[in-house]
Amino acid sequence: MANHDLKKGSTELLVLALLEARARHGYEIGKLIEARSDGRLTFRIGSLYPVLCRLEDRGLITGRWTEKTGERRRRFYRLTAEGRSVLERQRTAWQEFSDAVNQILRNRHA
């Protein structure tokens, strides 16, 4: 199911969505995607890291080294204000797009 091309186009959206609630560190983001998609979507660190880099570059997320009590220092990424508005726009666009796609796919069965 996890078609490569589809995954590629939506990774940024997924990362932004996962950071909406709170800041997370890099490995956590990958684990969460896997968990929430019931293992259907998996991202290796090697493919996720450049996405984080790119998003940070565009100012949609920022990373910061944080040390939580009893844990190692990790770099936590959180959404910026701009990231939040981009996420909103992309979420709507995705919704509309997938609705449209679904509609067409369903129509064929009808």
Binding site: H25, G26, Y27, E28, I45, Y49, C53, G63, W65, R72, R73, R74, R75
Partner: peptide, 14 residues
């Protein structure tokens, strides 16, 4: 430094 540390930290988590 940042890039190396971040990647190392993620790999350690894994």
């Amino acid at each position: 430094q940042d890039v190396v540390a971040d990647l190392a930290s993620q790999l350690e988590d894994a």
